[in-house]
Computed example of a mutant assay.
Amino acid sequence: MPTALRDILPGTRRLARQAGLLLGVSVLIGAFLFHVWTGLGQLPERWPTLLWNVYFSFIYAVFIVTSIRATMTVLEARVPLRSRRAVALHVGVLSVATVTAYGLATGFCKVLHASSFSVRWQVLVVTATVTFVVTLVWSAFAYMNSFYQKLREAEAAQYEARLAALRAQINPHFLFNAFNSIAALVRTRPGEAEAVVEDLSDLFRYALQASKDSGMATLGAEVKAVRRYLSVEQARYRDRLIAEINVPEDLRSAPVPSMTVQPLVENAVKHGVGETQGDCTVSVTAERANGTLLLRVLDTGPGFDSTDLCDMLGEGSGLANVRERLELFFGEAAQMRLLPQGIELQIPLRETVEVRPEPEFVEPAVEMNEAE
């Protein structure tokens, strides 16, 4: 069979399903008409009449279904359902197509079986009514399915657009300060400057990969990215920044939205170390609690002026970005709470989420306290 013809004709299984559906509808309509005009009580004596009814119903079903499917295909291609006028046009054209197909089926049956096919107006009115109702119900379900598919596609497109926008948010102040730190180290400590460049490169490679995948990563991968970030910031703050990471090994495979932990740590460095003259400890801890992952990012800085999350979300895009990512992936099942000295996330533990493997990072040049 030529390729073009093979693409047009339905597959064997699909054709068998359609034929079975048409036959089933024909049996139901034929039995209904037999009950109306003859009565099911006379079935043993007049069963050939039932078979004739099913046969004629099958012819009508083939004509009408074929006509409606062809009409719907043309209408969907020429008149997209984007307004009430388009919907009204679809309904009107389908009604005309149904009446025309009914007339053609009637003429076909009369020509093919002139002696056994009755054209009494009572029979035609009843069969036409039944046919129109069945067609109307079938068309309604077909259009509802079409609307549902388009709604799912629109929601998926909106979700991807929102996720892409969130992934694209990179703090320019961090990048500016990192370059300043590198420039200051190049002359005095070139080896350390090279290590900072490598850490910065690894961090942005991870962020770039996060913009291409499904949006999920392991907690272990997030922790490694955070260590790169803290290593870069320690080149700026030196001994004033003390980093502590306490993430149990059995939780490092837990799936979390990518680029979720780093904005929280960045916020801790900005409001903790950045607003403190002395030493400041930034800690990242994780634990399992009632089937959820409790992730805390704390600092020993001056703390927040308020624990009202809504007040803090308006001060920058970092925390708002994290909360929106949690809502996209987990809905109301994930929680974000503001603590006096940091942020706590409560994330459902899902073992079946597809995540990308952890990146192969070299160890950062600056030592960090990390408890297993």
Score class of each variant (00 low, 15 high):
residue 165 A to Y: 06
residue 80 P to F: 04
residue 112 L to A: 13
residue 117 F to D: 01
residue 86 A to I: 02
residue 82 R to I: 06
residue 119 V to H: 04
residue 79 V to Q: 05
residue 110 K to H: 07
residue 176 F to M: 04
residue 143 Y to E: 15
residue 142 A to L: 05
residue 148 Y to P: 08
residue 187 R to F: 11
residue 169 Q to D: 09
residue 126 V to L: 05
residue 113 H to P: 03
residue 124 L to R: 02
residue 81 L to A: 06
residue 172 P to G: 09
residue 103 G to F: 01
residue 133 V to A: 12
residue 174 F to I: 02
residue 182 I to V: 14
residue 146 S to N: 10
residue 86 A to N: 04
residue 93 V to W: 00
residue 160 E to K: 10
residue 136 L to V: 09
residue 78 R to A: 09
residue 107 G to R: 00
residue 156 A to K: 01
residue 138 W to Q: 08
residue 153 E to W: 10
residue 149 Q to H: 13
residue 151 L to G: 15
residue 78 R to Y: 01
residue 184 A to C: 03
residue 133 V to L: 10
residue 180 N to R: 03
residue 124 L to V: 09
residue 162 R to F: 11
residue 155 E to M: 09
residue 175 L to C: 06
residue 141 F to E: 12
residue 128 A to I: 02
residue 173 H to W: 08
residue 151 L to N: 15
residue 112 L to G: 11
residue 159 Y to T: 11
residue 87 V to I: 13
residue 108 F to P: 00
residue 170 I to F: 14
residue 135 T to Q: 04
residue 135 T to P: 10
residue 115 S to W: 06
residue 158 Q to G: 15
residue 131 T to R: 01
residue 124 L to D: 04
residue 83 S to L: 07
residue 90 H to S: 07
residue 80 P to N: 05
residue 174 F to P: 14
residue 126 V to E: 06
residue 129 T to V: 10
residue 90 H to F: 05
residue 145 N to H: 09
residue 85 R to H: 10
residue 144 M to F: 15
residue 176 F to W: 07
residue 183 A to D: 08
residue 126 V to K: 00
residue 117 F to E: 02
residue 146 S to G: 13
residue 146 S to A: 07
residue 126 V to R: 03
residue 147 F to L: 13
residue 182 I to C: 07
residue 168 A to I: 06
residue 178 A to F: 01
residue 113 H to I: 09
residue 112 L to C: 08
residue 102 Y to R: 00
residue 133 V to K: 00
residue 128 A to P: 00
residue 164 A to F: 13
residue 99 V to Q: 02
residue 148 Y to C: 14
residue 132 F to T: 07
residue 165 A to Q: 08
residue 185 L to N: 05
residue 108 F to G: 10
residue 108 F to A: 15
residue 103 G to Y: 04
residue 164 A to C: 01
residue 81 L to V: 13
residue 121 W to C: 00
residue 115 S to T: 08
residue 109 C to M: 03
residue 122 Q to G: 10
residue 122 Q to R: 02
residue 84 R to I: 06
residue 165 A to S: 13
residue 175 L to G: 12
residue 81 L to S: 12
residue 141 F to L: 06
residue 111 V to K: 02
residue 159 Y to D: 11
residue 155 E to G: 13
residue 107 G to C: 05
residue 95 S to H: 06
residue 166 L to M: 12
residue 90 H to L: 03
residue 101 A to K: 00
residue 150 K to G: 13
residue 112 L to T: 10
residue 155 E to S: 15
residue 178 A to I: 01
residue 171 N to A: 04
